[in-house]
Design a binder for these strands. Structure first.
Lengths: 298, 298
DNA sequence: AGCTCTTATGAATCATTGA
DNA sequence: GTCAATGATTCATAAGAGC
């Protein structure tokens, strides 16, 4: 029986990370503050200053990441003066100069993107999930994110409506039945580099970052149990929460005390639920208060 | 009834375009030869030389495009030595320096992408469709590409609740949902910047996989009938073919004579079919104008 | 368990107005 | 003239309640 640690630390990751040794984390997955958004609540970095702001922090990330580990960066540039800003492109180029390998770019398709209408632009329904590595020998557990084909097909068929049929030209033309026959006999399929997740929109009083499904997918793909996961811009602690649920150790850092408190509460809540479920749980409030949360694993 | 012109020209677009006047085309949509791929069949440009090769040609494109026109570039970087190459990012930055505005990046999600398995990479299921403009006052006919609303709308609009009327401002006080009655009776919605098209894989002898649905969508969105469409890397002539079918004038340029012959044949065939089925063709067109769906949701 | 119906809200963007 | 705040526009999802 091993213990899972879940730490929430308050401060700028640039400073906090100094405490951590080289080559420690197996995965860094984060959604940093986007340029020029939430300027009131999150210290708003200007698009033109974004790369300059980011690089010292990514330098620390490069140090604490293991050589077989992975860094996943969820980000999307906004429209400025009718154009997409280029700071994300410049960031990718700068990170490569810093020593990172730009291994892959996943697309997160936001199925329920924000509504709106403009004369010269459609709604933005996707974000980048940039994968960086220190070496091209990195750990990847592809089987852990395989899609069960049978269930998927069952669900898909059940939910199939006439609107779906109208929208799906290829199904109409090529015959849906023919495709179904392809699925028979195959249980699991590997995914692609396009991820389809909806943003979470339940009642929340803080600005949501990414949906749990997003870090969950990358944690499964790039780590195994008892590995260490870092989120240097933790926000309300989604990554730490998910890591705990998947039996991964994790560290979440955020500069705002309010967010750290929220994250702490999420983790504590989880601990409490566990406590109820399992009688032999040994309570350790001292550590929980100091930002460490232990979870049993059998 | 006016005449639609469809020209196929053999040669390097860098030279051919010199014949064309400034501010002539309403839309340029193309899928240029990707760097380092198809090197045997298409004169393979090396990734490191790609920007340098592209810029003189895009200079001509900038000249022949009208100031209210749009340039759509379908492209995707390949993995080189385990990394995504950066030439597309560099190209975007270079095009901006050349005077283009980088207005938007659409994602083309390839639903039936090429099968395969690698130890450190999933299948690549998306490509970029980069939108560039000469000014932020460009023509966009959004109604032409509207899609049916989801099933949710049917139930949602049956009864207007009071919460719809006073949606409280959670983060950004945007006064949302003030007039839900606007939705009643609507059955079409505007699309997003994520496009779901299947690749056409029936013609194995052409190396370019450019499904008709892709240029079709952009032609409908950015041009009206009798406008001029250019594809400077026409390949087998998909853009010209589709333009003709949508009653747009077009010019397709390709450096390979074989491709030009293929394209020529496609157009002739189509013309013949047009002549035969004129009545039916007109009616189809009316339907298309009223919003037949070419887009899929997952 | 399942299913239907209700309801809140999400890293949005542009045009206009005001300082 | 540049920058900042405000108003207007809008779609799809999942939690939760009810049956």
């Amino acid at each position: 029986m091993k213990t899972i640690e879940t730490k929430i630390e308050n401060g700028d990751c640039l400073n906090i990370l100094k405490k951590y040794p080289d080559n420690f984390f197996n995965l860094i997955v984060t959604s940093p503050p986007y340029a020029d958004s939430r300027s009131k609540t999150y210290g708003g970095i200007k698009p033109n200053e974004y790369v300059e702001w980011f690089l010292p922090r990514s330098e620390e990330l490069l140090r604490v990441l293991r050589s077989d580990g992975t860094f996943v960066l969820n980000i999307k540039e906004k429209a400025v003066n009718g154009e997409r800003h280029t700071y994300v492109l410049e960031l990718i180029l700068a990170l490569r100069k810093q020593g990172w390998l730009w291994t892959e770019e996943f697309v997160w398709h936001k199925k329920n993107c924000f509504p709106g209408k403009w004369p010269n632009r459609f709604r933005d329904a996707w974000e980048r999930c940039l994968q960086f590595n220190k070496s091209n020998k990195f750990n990847m557990y592809q089987e852990e994110v395989m899609v069960p084909m049978g269930d998927w097909a069952k669900n898909r068929l059940k939910k199939l409506s006439n609107t779906d049929l109208n929208r799906d030209e290829s199904k109409v033309n090529s015959g849906f039945g023919k495709n179904v026959s392809n699925w028979v006999g195959r249980d699991m399929a590997y995914p692609t580099n396009v991820l389809h997740f909806a943003t979470e929109c339940y009642n929340k009083n803080h600005s949501a970052v990414f949906p749990k499904a997003l870090p969950e997918w990358f944690i499964k793909l790039f780590t195994k149990k008892h590995d260490w996961v870092l989120d240097p811009f933790a926000g309300s602690g989604t990554t730490a929460d998910v890591s705990q649920g998947l039996n991964r150790n994790s560290v979440g850092i955020d500069i705002l005390p309010e967010y750290c408190q929220l994250a702490q509460k999420r983790i504590a809540h989880y601990q409490y639920r566990l406590f109820e479920d399992e009688a032999q749980y040994e309570s350790n409030n001292t550590e929980a208060d100091s930002g460490i949360c232990r979870r049993e694993y059998t």
